[in-house]
Design a protein around this nucleic acid. Structure first.
Lengths: 215, 215, 215, 215
DNA sequence: TATGAATGAGTCTTCATTCAT
DNA sequence: GATGAATGAAGACTCATTCAT
């Protein structure tokens, strides 16, 4: 009661400690929603501040500049994604896993829009590009190891090395990420289900046993 | 020939000879290279004009506004792409075709960067989005018909409907389009070759005969 | 048939003479309608040219610059007004006269809007101001002489010098000219009729014979 | 006191003391004088800012856009006018009242010029038009009630309904408002006095008792 | 810790004007 | 006589950033 705080709900008494991170997170949440709705280019610090209920100065107080904010945002999004992957990793077969993954990502309506904005902006922000590249590399590793395990179990085809398969699946995901905001009407739940099923079919085991890609 | 002709230093005034469409194309070329290098957000009319050797006013003389310019740009890029597809469409088997396609697109170093910028910006420019959606629909149709023909010939798997297959391949292409500018070092010629081979393997005929996806 | 032209309808054969003035008038007509609809500030030479079916260059060919065009426009409008005044001047009593005047001016829907734009812009264009001042002086003289005649006939009050009366009536007209575009709904035909009747009443003869204003 | 305080030359940054409304008023004052001198069309934000000793950005900080600034300006001018009317409303007879009104309005050399600019611009700015229409309606009501009271007292003519009379007088005022900047030499103090006296005469009681206008 | 006033560079856009053809 | 390409200055507006308080 005397000092330890952290709960925003509690009426602030005494010296608030550890609020710094909380405030940053709050700002980041606001930034997420602004970027998701209006895109990176239209996400001014003023708008972010306003959405969070703060003033412009607050944003520049918590973040050295816009770039730093965006990077912090990217890191936090990726951290979320990490947690999500962690959560579903145990799941049995590939199909269940893909479906869990799909359900979680579409569950957050800001997930894809923000991701595509970050990806697009990354091209012109080296620091952001570095963050993205690092995380993506890790995801591809994770995917690859999942796929490799599945290959070992014989539940998916093993004629294509797991890392290439991971690359292909990631690319598909990114492609849909980019296109869905442009032609949302094309991505009906029905169509998405078909696409997912087709992906499953695509990577299903082939009868002829192990064959190397390109051979 | 005897009379002193205007140096480039001298501001051009009055009515020079020259064809309207040619000038527009010239400006579009400048816009292409600026967008490819600096991205849509940083491609100010000033920069475009400067790169073409004109003043800002000239750009707004040829294009009502920035949006119209970008749309004209997209349209012209897609026209190029149409021509390219036309040229390679006759090619025999899928592998040759994919390779031709790859060679042509990587032949133009501005192709992927500009495409990814347009895609990313399309999300915030409904008119551009419409153009992209229309063209993409056509491309998917073309891909699908090519794939369907190949399925009929038995050169690729027929357990996944051609349109879904087309969607998957398009998405992969878009995904790589987005990522290659962010981590160019990952897309070495060697890796690209492997990825392409893996795609070929992915869609190669499966021994078990026709199976419906998702079943 | 060999040379005399002037009719725009006739297919142009041989050397067209006297077309210069006709073209100017055409351009002026276009300028009138643009200014009436969009106001002086928004009446760019491009718009004027376009409305007349010409190019920008044509306008600057026929008029040294925008100011000259506006002045020519003002002169031509005032010439029209002169002709109109001329036409109704003979009319019998004041009431008939006022009604004729009203009918003619409201008959041309561009009359008041253009007039108010010119008046407003005149303040910042000395040459235009001069034109307006001259013409207005003449109108006040005409009004004054009409009013003086009516005073002599005893059909209107003579306790206020005709020139002051003319000033007052002009001012009222200008005032309504200015306000009608701002609150058009206030100037219903019914209200206008009442206002006109009230003006007639205002200047009707007073029983007490001649009295000097202010005394 | 010992330490060197900032000169006016030094660009002001950071958060100075000072009240938001006061600064707004300051900018409005600058806007008033620019508009009075150069007209609405020539009153760029740059000029306004400069006159107030700020940069353009400061103006757009205090006002969302130019339109909002002009409306705030109009509003404040009308508020002044309200106060003025309030102050003189008690005055005895019409003549004294008119003279007080006149004295106050000509006391502010920016009053008429700004008013005429606002009126003229109102035609092309619906939001401004609304403000003007509302205020004007109120003024006409006030004038009408003053005139009605005078009619009841028998100090002015009662053969014309007070609201029509108010309309006529307002219109005259507006007409002179518009013309005085165009031909200022015409509005000598002497002439103004005569015009005012003529107005008094115009609305003086008529001997013949109550007559309805237009009958 | 947080505010919010103010900057200044930049954006797109509009336009009268010029002038080679 | 008429065109229309191009200029260049100006306009309104946006925004990341700075900083006194």
């Amino acid at each position: 009661m005397t000092s330890r705080s952290g709960d925003e709900e509690v009426a602030q008494r005494g010296r608030p400690t550890g609020n710094h991170e909380a405030k940053r997170a709050e700002l980041l949440k606001a930034a997420t929603s602004v970027i998701a709705q209006e895109g990176y280019a239209n996400a001014s610090l003023r708008k972010v501040a306003k959405r969070a209920g703060y003033t412009t100065g607050a944003v520049t107080y918590y973040f050295a500049n816009k770039e730093e904010m965006v990077i912090a945002l990217a890191e936090s999004r990726f951290d979320n994604y990490d947690a999500m992957l962690e959560a579903i990793q145990g799941e049995g077969d590939i199909k269940t896993l893909v479906n869990s993954w799909l359900k979680t990502t579409v569950g957050d309506p800001e997930f894809w829009p923000v991701m595509s904005e970050l990806l697009a902006h990354g091209r012109h922000d080296p620091a952001l590009a570095r963050v993205i590249a690092e995380r993506y590399a890790r995801y591809r590793d994770i995917y690859a190891s999942i796929l490799a395990a599945a290959q070992a179990q014989g539940t998916i085809r093993d004629d294509i090395p797991a890392d290439l398969l991971a690359d292909q699946l990631s690319a598909m995901g990114d492609g849909w990420t980019m296109m869905s905001p442009i032609e949302p009407e094309r991505f009906t739940p029905q169509r998405v289900r078909e696409l997912v099923d087709a992906v499953i079919a695509l990577i299903a085991p082939v009868s002829g046993g192990r064959r190397e890609a390109g051979s």
